[in-house]
Write a protein that binds this DNA or RNA. Structure first.
Lengths: 353, 353
DNA sequence: TTGTACGCGTTATCAA
DNA sequence: TTGATAACGCGTACAA
């Protein structure tokens, strides 16, 4: 019965089951295809009678509207492209969950592309999104190069950047990002309140757009507390757990060890905690630790991690809503502007009593 | 300049930047649009001279082929739909990363939909994928209801199920799944080798298709070791960390407490470990623990978690390759069949010395 | 209230 | 080697 299968997928639907179009419905209903089109799109230009008749028929025939054909004439695809570095990053995954979820609610679907931070992949992704005629693009990548942004904007559709504010962005590009400086300040300030004065900062990658802000917040909190900034206490990391592990070793090698560490993000913090414990240190007794992001595992690590919580799902949601406002501006409203959301300090056990 | 923006996105591209089609190129090049089409698709029916001339022109004009129009006539979209429960699940996220990555390599793009396990969302997602004319669908959901599968197959395109083998699937539906029974056996056997005889099993949701197999493996290992099966040692879980926490409390309430626990998955195991530590138990000394999946955090938890590793990325990759073989059967090859991959025991510290 | 005719951007089938 | 012309499935201005 399904023997034709091995010959490959027949062009449209299988030979066993050809696809039904509005013309087919029209033929069976004895009307023109335009009447069918109107009936299915609930146009007032059709009698209620034929409307229901056609709709029933469409249901019986198993009709499914062809979004491509529709988009071709309408000029919109109700699809938004989402570009991430990797979906395996727990932070990004949660943001994307927020994006997909609200996009779905608004009748949009999502094309997901991951760049793996490889420039060629990024460009290929952009070309593909452009060809697929997405209505807009949301980018959740911690670093968006200038050239890359240029290509992105070359698609000619609105772009929303998450955690990646850029000054040199085009007129259709907006960003929504967490207040990194304030978050860094909150975390450091918290450690200071806990009585620490030698506080390390484990940095992220320098090309991550959030890095500078978090470090500034760290510096500011120190300054406000009258603690002299010690460059030796700022160690390099990479945003991943292994970076945190290496950072701990670097701190261990210091003459005067820190009693606390604020880490660029949770992954770094978790790696640092693990390495500390492996080296016989107790957290938070020997070294207090605070992270950034509040990924799901922050509360499941041992000890549970004190961190700055970002409203990840909400940021995804907000990004979609901003995108829709760009695509379908509501008459009265003000045009969108860049958004900065505040992170929240979540005190858990890794920062002490 | 970009003042027209607030009037909404103009149909195709912005007014500032109308989209260029092959007809535009044809006009400028003084040839017919079919010649342009041929030149761009590298047809041998065009002189090398005009071919390069047209291609250069296309580049200058910033031409981007319209995938929709193309698909409309070709009958393929080079798009596959991916259905997950939630992308925020670390296991699923890694599988999807594997899917997106290899799909990209093969020239396919991915539409991501998350069902949140809500039936209405699932059906809406299926309808949307059908309308968008995806070439195939990959499902990574731990439970696929019979009705749901029916709808899925109603799209008329191949379906690949990950970790969700079903006997009652249609002729175009295949599955790739881990050997749950063997994995459960491996983990339990490992705990037995470590000297444990009272070993608990913390179950997953009963409607998860992997649950039965893992439990069977557990039972078999016990039987082979001559250990009597004690139903009291099988406690309910839900596949999440809070389920593991509750399970530990249940085990604590037992007359004869277990000295080890095999958990349905890593999230459950992590929750159980955390609850144990909160209750003054030491892992693995007081209770040894093994999980299943080997999510990224298994190695980052404290103590690092012994678990059964699933080749998550490879499973995603394999799913795509299977899909492509269904879409473009290579002449000589055998038709795809359901695949069962073996998990690997990864011994870390949570299971003892 | 309905039907006709055209266009969206492609590919493909004919003639030339 | 190239150019008309007809599809693909749909929306819509225009005419009836």
């Amino acid at each position: 019965m399904a023997m034709g299968w091995r010959e490959g997928c027949a062009p449209k639907g299988t030979k066993d089951m050809p696809r039904v179009s509005i013309k087919d419905i029209a033929r069976q209903a004895g009307v023109s295809h335009s009447t069918v089109s109107r009936a299915l799109s609930d146009s007032p230009l059709v009698s209620a009678q034929t409307k229901t008749r056609i709709r029933l028929l469409a249901g019986d025939l198993g009709y499914s509207p062809d979004a491509q054909a529709r988009s071709l004439v309408i000029g919109r695809t109700w699809t938004i492209g989402v570009v991430v570095t990797t979906i395996a990053d727990p932070f990004i995954a949660e943001v994307v969950q927020g994006i997909e979820s609200t996009a779905h609610d608004k009748g949009y679907s999502v094309i997901l592309t991951s760049s793996n931070s490889e420039p060629e992949r990024e460009l290929a992704a952009v070309a593909m999104l452009r060809s697929k005629r997405v209505d807009g693009v949301i980018v959740t990548s911690s670093r968006v190069g200038a050239i890359y942004l240029e290509h992105l904007e070359g698609i000619g559709v609105p772009v929303v950047l998450i955690n990646n504010h850029r000054e040199d962005s085009g007129p259709y590009t907006f960003s929504i990002s967490v207040d990194n400086r304030h978050g860094g300040w909150l975390a450091t300030q918290h450690l200071i309140e806990r009585g620490h004065r030698r506080i390390a900062y484990v940095a992220g990658r320098e090309d991550h757009s959030s890095e500078a802000g978090r470090r500034e917040g760290y510096c500011q909190a120190l300054a406000e507390a009258g603690i002299a900034f010690d460059p030796a206490l700022v160690v390099r990391g990479n945003g991943r757990s292994d970076g945190g592990e290496e950072a701990l070793l670097a701190l261990l090698a210091l003459q005067e060890r820190p009693t606390a560490a604020f880490c660029y993000n949770d992954m770094t913090a978790i790696g640092l905690v693990l390495a500390a414990q492996r080296n016989g240190l107790r957290v938070p007794e020997s070294i207090a630790v605070a992270g950034f992001d509040d990924i799901a595992f922050a509360s499941l690590s041992n000890p549970p991690l004190t961190t700055i919580s970002q409203p990840k799902r909400d940021m995804g949601k907000h990004a979609v809503e901003m995108m829709l406002e760009l695509l379908n501006p509501t008459p009265g409203s003000t045009p969108p502007s860049n958004v900065v959301v505040q992170g929240q300090l979540v005190v858990r056990e890794s920062s002490g009593r």
